[in-house]
Nucleic acid binder design. Structure first.
Length: 482
DNA sequence: ATGTGC
């Protein structure tokens, strides 16, 4: 059955609350007409209606312009639940806990990098391994992983990876004190021990990009971006096997308790845990530990990128101006204060494939950006381009301060492998001056630009709605993929 | 996303 859909405004759609008896609020979908057409092809709409059944959910369940079907809960989905009477859904955070994006600026221009591009991409590929199960160049001593889980980026900086000033430009300084390593299983720790500083697979990547267009010079400048042709680095990765195991462990625990808790699920994949249960608290502490791991992973990847630049350009990374612009997650739940129907509420906001996009003034934003709004980092698909936006006040009321996270798939991985031979995809990219290195050729097919929705239309829709405002568009020149 | 499927 197709959910009933009402268009209630420009780029705004609603599935009414009476569609399913379990819905506590309506579902709201933010999408242009053409993006909505793509969402009708899978279970996205059914899933966003199911999310509206979560205990303690406020206002409406949300699907963003790039939403597509996920495990129980759309990728590109948002749900805010009451912090004491609501329920946490691990599937509403996702298997890749605290997956996100970090961008570095440099003083280099595209012409400085072009002649050395292949060498640079090879150096990054060597230092920052990509691919499923790949291990990294940092060997953790016994007990050291627990410190990573409890302390995050602060641990890495103490060990000499990165610069202390990096922390100022990472969401939550890359160190979440809610973390408790003792809530992470031994199995998860075993999987995570060797994987720090690795890219992973799927849509994860490190890209060398060039600024293609600046929409807002003042804000761009505040972000450290001065001109067209300036070289940026974008790192997209997450918590690897460790986060995946944490999600698997707690989804299994929740499944075993559903009856006891008296929950009725619209979809067996949408398990949830009442916030006030021991199990939910354990999950949140483990989730925060996995978040620290993901931030530390991106931090080490950044360290290796700086080292790759050092070796290729024979210059210190600080002399190359390789400063962090920002690091932001798009698979996480956060405890936040929001105005809901005139009341200030404490809520856990699930953002799955969705980027926090807070406007100027919010206390969560680093001091350096507090008067501007937070950078919103939106990677496009391989070979197309990416965006940096800035948080806008309008998003607080519309989406609990959330913007989309990327282009979103439009072809399944298997369909992409059938339709798009890797050699053709690669030569098309090389023909446009983009150097690509991948651990596995199949990934090149799965991640081909044609397999994704158009990032430009996703960003246009977000900008038009006021979910965030466009600042910079980049285009890739070098890509390292799983 | 994932030592990729229970």
């Amino acid at each position: 059955m197709v959910p009933p859909l009402r268009k209630i405004g420009s780029n705004v759609w609603e599935i009414p609350r009476d569609y399913k008896p379990c819905m506590k609020v309506p579902a709201r979908i933010f999408a242009s007409d053409s993006l909505m057409e793509k969402m009708r092809n899978d279970l996205t709409l059914e899933q966003v209606a199911n999310v509206a059944c979560l205990p303690g959910i406020y206002k409406y369940s949300i699907a963003l312009p790039d939403a597509h079907q996920g495990y129980g809960f759309p990728v590109g989905g948002v749900a805010a639940v009451d912090a004491s009477s609501g329920a946490i859904s691990p599937g509403g955070i996702g298997y890749d806990i605290n997956c996100g994006v970090r961008v570095l600026r440099t003083d280099l221009k595209i012409d400085d990098v072009k002649p050395k591009l292949r060498e640079l991409v090879d150096a990054i590929f060597k230092l920052a391994p990509a691919g499923v199960g790949e291990t990294g160049h940092v060997k953790l001593q016994v007990g050291e992983l627990d410190r990573v889980l409890n302390e995050g980026v602060a641990w890495a900086i103490g060990k000499g990876y990165g610069w202390s000033e990096d922390q100022e430009r990472i969401e939550q300084n890359g160190s979440w004190d809610y973390a408790d390593a003792s809530k992470v299983s031994q199995r998860a720790k075993e999987r995570g021990r060797g994987e720090l500083g690795t890219i992973g697979s799927g849509n994860h990547f490190i890209e060398v990009q060039a600024v293609e267009r600046i929409f807002d010079e003042k804000v761009a400048k505040a972000f450290g971006i001065d001109e067209v042709g300036q070289v940026l680095i974008m790192i997209h990765s997450g918590s690897r096997g460790l986060g995946h195991q944490v999600a698997t462990d707690y989804i299994r625990i929740a499944e075993g308790k559903i009856r006891q808790w008296g929950l009725v699920l619209p979809d067996r994949e949408l398990v949830s845990m009442p916030v006030n249960t021991r199990e939910a608290q354990d999950y949140l502490h483990a989730m925060a530990a996995a978040a620290n791991y993901a931030w530390t992973n991106r931090h080490l990847l950044m360290h290796w990128v700086r080292e790759a630049f050092r070796s290729v350009f024979n210059k210190d990374p600080d002399k190359l101006g390789m400063r962090v612009v920002y690091d932001v997650a798009h698979n996480i739940a956060k405890l936040e204060e929001h105005d809901v129907e005139g009341q200030r509420r404490s809520v856990w906001v699930h953002r799955k494939g969705a980027t926090r996009a807070f406007p100027a003034g919010r206390p969560e934003i680093p001091k350096v950006y507090r008067d501007i709004g937070q950078p919103v980092l939106i990677p496009g698909s391989m070979g197309t381009g990416s965006y940096i936006l800035v948080g806008a006040a309008t998003s607080m009321d519309l989406t609990f301060g959330t913007a989309p996270h990327g282009a979103g798939r439009q072809l399944s991985r298997s369909a992409a492998v059938r339709m798009l031979p890797p050699s053709k995809v690669k030569s098309a990219l090389e023909g446009r001056g983009i150097v690509v290195r991948s651990a596995e050729s199949e990934i090149i097919s799965e991640e081909a630009p044609e397999a994704y929705k158009d990032v430009d239309s996703v960003v246009e829709t977000a900008d038009a709605l006021g979910l965030a405002r466009k600042v910079v568009r980049t285009r890739p020149i070098g890509v390292v993929k799983g």
